[in-house]
Design a protein around this nucleic acid. Structure first.
Lengths: 245, 245
DNA sequence: TCCGCTATGCGTACAGTGTGCGCATCGAAG
DNA sequence: CTTCGATGCGCACACTGTACGCATAGCGGA
């Protein structure tokens, strides 16, 4: 098998035996890199993304990526900001602020569950890097809560979205575990049930809670949806009390 | 400089030139390993913990640790459960459930801020591994909310602690960033302010929010405490509405 | 006192990781 | 045609988690 790379050890390097640098591939660019990174993160999880694998997927060497991205951390920040664009926040000033906030919160959640690595990166980086998409997300939230009449909109936003982030993080971690097991959520739950029962046997109230949960043998995804909606309603009720009448 | 290790390449290995296996050190044990790992995590952050460094700190080789711990992930789970013991949940049945829940939530938060890697690991592992300390934490919470009269205590717990986890995660990430900069929180805020102002200049509502925040030039830690308490009160108000009278 | 046996420590090795450096090559500008 | 900046890439370094097998220490029984 003959190779024709420039830096082969033994053969005499010859100019004409050299490959054209790929004439078909759409070339490396920051956008392409970020897009492909997101695809890999979504498909195989956060620990499966390495610069070498990402390079290979782009028909490029690992270190070529560093021409377009300073560091892997920066790449992650770019990825976060990219998916932040998927979060939908209704325009401010509508008649029903609760519906609008519910929509925004739900959109955040579905985005976080579609990209389960999102919450991990948020927890690591904080919001040190403030990308444009994340900024407009925040801006729209601020507009929404201001129009709703909250005197201190940032406090209200923090209350709602701390809840949303916390719940989404927990759900994303759960879904990642399920995915790693290569099963559907129902299968995984079924397989986990005996263990859960056994472990919680020594704890009165946990056993009780587990019993009532297991009683309603419904679709686990539906159950998570309900749980999220319940908690969100709790927070919004609490906030509604603080709206000046 | 002479070395006397067994497996030196050149010198003839001789039995008497061998070191006694340290007679003073208190020996390796799972407890000691976990304790030292927590110390390193607290001191230098999650990415500074490696099996080799941890081994060195215990006067042991890296791979010796694997006699007591199956894998690094397992070690992290053990560390999480260890610090879970620090979270204080008041006994159930007291006269003031709100005060009790506030105490438990605050205890979780301070624990999470004392060990800023906690939320990261929680976000990664989910709650797949259910250590004994975490179990009794959950059990006590269940007891507390049941005694308070909630018909579905687990939903109430999820609502409150999703908020608590979300806020703690954000705060921990922030504190980690500050710590990495090697400054106090106030210094860091001061240095960040011009940038923040500039970035949010293009966004009406963010600029407004930033202005009101900057106006109250108080201790940032105090501000975080207030923010946490505010959101927690919101959630508890919402929950109180759901208590059967 | 001696003999195995098991539990424990550790050196080596392997397959990865992020990324700094310098060279090769390209397209465009002068 | 020459020159130059931008881009890709091979190599190398320091580091990671951990599998494997050997060396040893302490101990229970003969």
């Amino acid at each position: 098998m003959s190779r024709s790379k420039t830096t082969d050890k033994n053969p005499i390097p010859s100019v004409w035996a050299r490959e054209q640098r790929r004439a078909d591939q759409p070339a490396l660019s920051r956008e392409a890199i970020v897009r492909e990174a997101i695809a890999m993160l979504d498909a195989d999880g956060i620990e499966a993304l390495s610069m070498r694998k990402l390079g290979a997927r782009l028909n490029a060497g690992a270190t070529s990526l560093y021409r377009h991205v300073a560091t892997k951390d920066e790449l992650m920040e770019l990825a976060v900001d990219e998916v932040a664009a998927e979060i939908h926040v209704p325009p401010a000033g509508g008649p029903d602020w609760r519906a609008a906030v519910t929509e925004a919160a739900g959109s955040f959640r579905t985005t976080a569950l579609r990209h389960p690595w999102l919450t991990l990166v948020l927890g690591q980086a904080g919001l040190a890097y403030l990308g444009p998409n994340y900024m407009t997300f925040s801006e729209r939230l601020a507009a929404l809560f201001t129009a709703a009449g909250f005197p201190e909109p940032s406090r209200a936003i923090d209350a709602v979205f701390s809840y949303v982030i916390g719940m989404s993080t927990t759900e994303a971690a759960w879904l990642t575990t399920v995915a790693r097991a290569g099963e559907t959520e129902s299968e995984f739950v079924a397989r986990l049930l005996p263990t859960a029962r056994q472990v919680s046997a020594g704890y009165d109230h946990l056993a009780a809670a587990e019993a009532t949960t297991a009683a309603q043998a419904v679709d686990p995804a539906r159950l998570r949806d309900d749980k999220f909606a319940y908690g969100l309603d709790v927070v919004l009720d609490g906030l509604a009390l603080r709206l000046p009448k």
